[in-house]
Simulated assay, not measured.
Amino acid sequence: MGKGARRIRLEPSGIRYWAVGQADLLSAAAGAGVAVPFACRNGVCELCEARLLAGYALNTRNQQMIPTGARLMMCRTVALGDIELEIPAVMAAGKNQPRTFQANVVDVRSINHDVYRIELQLPRRRELSFHAGQYLSVVLPGADPCYFSIASSPSEQNIELHIQATPEWVSAQKVIDALTSGETVRLELPHGKACIASAPEKPLLLVAAGTGFAQMKSLVDYLRGTSFDQPVKLFWGVRHHEDMYLGSKARQWEQDWPGFTFQPVVGDDEDNDWSGHHEQLVRTVLASGVDWNNVEVHASGSPAMVYALMDALVDAGLPPEGFFSDVLEYAPRS
């Protein structure tokens, strides 16, 4: 960050972001993608209340210094240097507790030969908080929960899902049948720790296989609404060209967003093992010329793909703590 930037640290989440110029703490948080609750933006609703733990800050309403330990409204406060705040309403990545919601089915449509785009509306949307890259479960009566990545940004009013379903995939097909025939569905969310709660400070490398693109779409839509200015590379691996169900959207991102590049990776149609080993996708990522010591990697796909990719990137020099995937949580190595 340049001259005049102040680092803001939020506790207990540990989230950090920068405030530049005369930006108030709430506006700076919004620019960094930090989800601070607010309504009025003039200090009346008190939803953005925090407590000053350390540093110097100014109340812009009365132009008075705020003493350490005092409460403040982030929309009416400017940092005069690096500061630390206590705000329990802001959760760290993956720390939101899952809750059950009844959602209205807004739209179910086929977007290629076996992928459906689902749009769901939560009547109490303001009660839901999740981070970009998290997932949810659809709970049908008498069936085990079915888990799907959330494809929409946390700032969107409706929830978007991408569900791959064929008659052979019984559980996914049951979900599609239920969504198509019903007006409401029961959800549990959010789940997942491989998510982003504020704009990262390093370049991003996103790797998806199949409908793993849904998680990457959530991350991209979220980051495009922040002040994030680092390069982003998206690799999307599919077996056949027709499996790249939203390739046009990824190509549009590349046109509209400076610093964003999209690399489609299409498997050899005659290689029956490609979908299991994902060697072509891993080789393409390795050949990307990325500085593995200065990048954050998010991967979404099958456990086989994710672990093959992680092993290859760590061998190439990526610090293990720079690799994020939900697979590491729900399918840990024994």
Rank of each mutant, 00 (worst) to 15 (best):
121 Q>K: 14
40 C>A: 02
258 P>R: 08
198 S>I: 01
19 A>N: 06
264 P>D: 05
86 E>N: 09
71 R>Q: 15
246 L>D: 09
334 S>D: 15
308 A>I: 06
105 V>W: 01
26 L>D: 14
110 S>P: 06
64 Q>A: 10
244 M>F: 09
69 G>N: 04
55 G>A: 13
29 A>D: 13
123 P>F: 03
172 A>V: 00
298 H>M: 10
73 M>K: 13
236 W>L: 15
232 V>T: 11
7 R>S: 13
136 L>D: 03
73 M>L: 12
272 N>K: 08
188 E>L: 01
28 A>T: 07
13 S>M: 06
229 D>H: 10
146 C>I: 04
128 L>W: 14
237 G>R: 04
177 D>C: 03
82 D>F: 01
243 D>Q: 12
236 W>F: 07
113 H>M: 11
248 S>L: 08
317 G>N: 10
88 P>W: 08
295 V>N: 03
137 S>D: 10
201 E>P: 00
333 R>S: 14
220 V>E: 03
332 P>F: 00
20 V>N: 14
77 T>P: 10
196 I>Y: 06
268 D>L: 05
120 L>M: 02
263 Q>R: 07
120 L>N: 06
206 L>E: 10
61 R>A: 15
198 S>K: 05
196 I>L: 15
315 D>N: 10
300 S>R: 09
261 T>L: 07
63 Q>L: 14
228 F>Q: 05
186 R>T: 06
309 L>H: 03
74 M>P: 04
180 T>A: 07
19 A>W: 04
168 E>K: 09
106 V>F: 04
173 Q>K: 04
20 V>R: 15
324 F>Y: 15
127 E>D: 12
92 A>M: 09
319 P>V: 13
131 H>F: 03
43 G>T: 02
119 E>R: 11
273 D>V: 06
269 D>N: 10
72 L>G: 10
